[in-house]
Design a protein around this nucleic acid. Sequence first.
DNA 1: TAAAATACCACGTCTGTCGTAGTATGTCAA
DNA 2: TTGACATACTACGACAGACGTGGTATTTTA
Lengths: 109, 109
Amino acid sequence: MTNISSDVIRGYNDTMILYLLRQGPSYGYEISKKIKELSGEKYIIKETTLYSAFTRMESKELITSYSGESESGKKRTYYRITDQGETYYRERVDEWNLTKDVIEKFIAV
Amino acid sequence: MTNISSDVIRGYNDTMILYLLRQGPSYGYEISKKIKELSGEKYIIKETTLYSAFTRMESKELITSYSGESESGKKRTYYRITDQGETYYRERVDEWNLTKDVIEKFIAV
DNA sequence: TAAAATACCACGTCTGTCGTAGTATGTCAA
DNA sequence: TTGACATACTACGACAGACGTGGTATTTTA
């Protein structure tokens, strides 16, 4: 079976995370499950990739974090998208449409 | 204007080069001009990226090289796709179709 | 009561891309 | 004839994102 390589999805992890955060604040474990689910099990983000994406995006001020708790009292770090993150997301969507068209020129029928 | 970032096209440079080599042997400068042309000037591959892709693909035996000359007598290195390169190309096409579907799930309408 | 799920983090490595810079030849216009 | 521009590469080092490995700690479930 063909798998999605990291070089190919690279540059879209941030976009996927932002897409999910646009629906409301969330945290690592939940995001990772949602990516798996939404992609129809076709893409499973690595934990380290996910958490380093959070760090990177927070330093770029695309997201902010705050501490929360699960129902059972476990600590969690929640992330929320910022206005800059919204803008960034929309730019990535535009870029995706452009990139898609370019790549398809090199995909033989 | 939105531009195509290297993180996004990353992983497709090899595929684009192989697509062009499937049409017959070619060399660096020509490949780079064809990529620019076929992409409608939307993507211009960097010289260093191109030549390092050649080296990488040759070591992976996806392409082979041989020396030739231009009409005016200048030396050129030509590249030809191998059977392994053909197979690799088709795998990347499959992967692209998969990846495209996944990413589009995270692109808001 | 042990395994699995939840929830995260540190550290170091790898790979592809790219910036900078350099070599060398051919062509064409002022 | 000279200088700019196109052609055709190559070397070297830096950088960023992804990921492998391994670790901590709590809760839930079989």
